[in-house]
Each structure stands twice: as structure tokens, then as C-alpha cells.
Computed example of a mutant assay.
Amino acid sequence: MQQDLLISRLQAGDEKAFERIYFLYSESLYGIIYNIIRDEKVAEELLQDVFLKIWNNASSYDPKKGRFFTWVLNIARNASIDRLRSKDFKNSKGNLRSENFEDILVAQSNSIGKIDAIGLQKYLDRIGPVCKRLIDLLFFKGFTQKESAEELDIPLGTVKSRNRVCIDKLRAHIISP
């Protein structure tokens, strides 16, 4: 089924279209959510919440403002970051044993490998290591701009400027590969 038709059917409340959207996007969205949350059960629960948001807000999607995948990816990313920053989530992670820390740190530093699951790796390779690292921190690890500035040891204003430049570069490569 053509994507435009599928999306318009979703916006009209067609449950079969919603099932197809779930089938097409659930694996990629789960990858984004898990990469930020780092907890399988919470990621699975959050994936369901994300699809509920997609269903409830389908009418707000506007193809003139961007691709559908970008829209659902932003819903997943924002929901993941909100959950990560929530008090309940922080409290539930407060009792981690010390042997878990190494696995968490290694997994968070290795998110580049998971980016290819959503087809961005070939584009990220074209924009250079500085942009690749910044986009990884901001969009795939859920860092704020301030946290990214601290991680990269650069001024916050530089992070904001580079973010804009890097996103423009990435957009240019995706639009005209």
C-alpha cells in the first residue's frame, strides 16, 4: 500500500492502517527508544505509549512539514527523553548495582551501531565526525544541548550553532543523496 494512502487511512481512524504502521515502524522506533532508555521492559511499555500517541494525534501530522517517519521518530524520541528525565524513572534506576554501570556506559557509547537500523548510517558517515558525534549525543542518546556541551567540552553556543549546521548538512544529504 502506498504510504500516503496508508497515512490518510490512519488519519481517518482505520485500524488496519494503524496495524500496518505498527508493523512498518515498531522495530525502528523500539531501537530509538531502547537506545535512550536502556531498559527492555520500559522500552516496550514506552513503545506502546508512543503508538497510542501516534493513533490519537494522527490528524496533527502534516506532510508539508516533514516526512511521516520523522514525525513518529520525534514522538518516540521525545517520549523517551521525557521518561528518562522523569522522577519515577530516576528513582527506579537509583538502586543499580555497580557491576551494571560498565554495561550501561559501554552500551551508551556504542549507539552508532544501532543508527543503521533506521537507515541513517550512510548519511551520518558523509557529514563528518564532529557532526556525527553531536547528532549521536543530542538525538540518539537524549542529551540536552547543555549536557552535550559539557560532554564535548565546548561552549553551549557552539553546540547550538553546530547542531543547526549539522542538521542542515544531514538534511541536504538525505534530500539529495
Rank of each mutant, 00 (worst) to 15 (best):
M1A: 09
Q2W: 07
Q3H: 12
A12Y: 08
G13H: 11
G13L: 12
D14L: 09
I21F: 04
S26D: 11
E27N: 11
Y30N: 06
Y34T: 05
V42Y: 04
A43E: 05
A43P: 08
E45F: 11
E45H: 14
L52V: 12
K53C: 11
W55F: 15
W55Q: 14
P63G: 06
K65C: 06
K65N: 13
R67N: 08
T70N: 14
V72F: 09
L73E: 15
N74K: 15
I81N: 05
R83N: 01
R85H: 00
S86P: 02
D88N: 04
F89M: 00
G94P: 00
N100G: 09
I104S: 14
A107Q: 13
S109F: 05
G113M: 02
I118H: 09
L120R: 04
Q121I: 05
D125V: 01
R126G: 00
G128Y: 03
C131H: 04
R133W: 02
L134W: 00
L134T: 01
I135V: 15
Q145L: 07
E150W: 06
E150K: 13
D153Q: 15
G157H: 07
T158H: 13
K160G: 01
S161N: 14
R162V: 02
N163W: 02
V165T: 08
C166R: 02
I167Q: 13
D168T: 14
K169Y: 07
K169A: 09
R171Y: 12
H173G: 01
H173D: 03
S176L: 11
